[in-house]
Design a protein around this nucleic acid. Structure first.
Lengths: 173, 173
DNA sequence: TATTGTTATACTCTATAACTATA
DNA sequence: TATAGTTATAGAGTATAACAATA
């Protein structure tokens, strides 16, 4: 320890003396200063991401879909005839971790694995009719509740600009 | 299952037929279509966040600090005399989970817990001299490597705009 | 009775090695 | 031999309940 007990006790008794702000009230329970943290992009990025995912879950709660599950359904709809490795790779999901996820979706009859006739090692993934129906309802909830709220808070132009920058970071950074 | 084996086999044999794009080459291994995924803000947000944290870890690797640990050191520096609950709450860390994190920082002599004389239940957190030194070096690495790279990719004006929007989302959403 | 720090615990995500069946 | 799907497993991160010391 490089901090002496004495210095520690001093700081405990009058922490105001160690701060830069002039001591105003003696109230010891004021809000903390974020300081340089508010300039750290990664910090706000993480906090924003948590909020957005939370809201997504709330908006799509009636369908019991996580953002990850929703992204799988979307991808299967757009890319029929693909196997597990292709879908998982595109979403940044590791193949071993994709197994349980697919088990969950398949057990709810949202998609199916079909052994490929060309290469009997691979499983072609397909949306079921129920999967397509759930996806359609989910898209509607996301558009009318989740993304609509984003537009309210940011405004359409800002929302688009934000999306562009985030996409660029995800791609090029 | 609502998808018959026959329909599945058809899709396997000629998945191009089920797609919207006109079939060009017979190459079965083209890049997948993200589709509506590229318009989902949360998707890009998550991917960008992962990239940014990855880069942060790389830039600060010589100091062996995670983004979360860095944020704790920053907060302790700005807010001396605070206890575990106050620091943890500000960062959105649950108190039970903050214990092991502090154990790690304290075992590396970056900060110390000091029993408060006012309220002997609470531990006042303080940076050690080594903690302050490491924080100073970390700030320099973050500024000159991590945030500098962000400025390169986005440009200073865009970087500022992005930070504003993310902060707003983290606050108001 | 309420709060601080703590332990125990569990659940989700993520990551790696190794197995099987096919190729 | 290489690849697809899988299993097992381990490590983070996150969440809740409950306990001891203190208020």
């Amino acid at each position: 320890m490089t901090v002496s007990k004495t210095a520690a006790a001093d700081a405990v008794k009058s922490s105001r003396a160690a701060r830069k702000e002039p001591a105003e009230a003696s109230a010891p329970d004021t809000a903390l200063q974020l300081g340089e943290l508010s300039e750290l992009l990664g910090y706000s990025l993480k906090r924003a991401q948590l909020r957005i995912f939370e809201d997504f879950l709330r908006c799509v709660a009636p369908l019991q879909l996580t953002p990850a599950q929703f992204s799988v359904l979307l991808l299967l709809d757009r890319n029929p005839g693909r196997n597990q490795t292709e879908i998982a790779n595109t979403l940044g999901i590791l193949r071993p971790n994709f197994v349980a996820m697919l088990d969950g979706l398949e057990s709810r009859d949202l998609c199916t694995r079909v052994r490929s006739t060309n290469d009997r090692r691979s499983h072609i993934l397909m949306l079921t009719d129920k999967g397509r129906a759930v996806l359609a309802r989910a898209k509607k909830l996301v558009a009318t509740k989740h993304e609509a709220r984003l537009n309210e808070v940011l405004g359409p132009a800002n929302r688009a600009a934000l999306l562009d920058m985030l996409s660029k970071l995800a791609r090029e950074f």
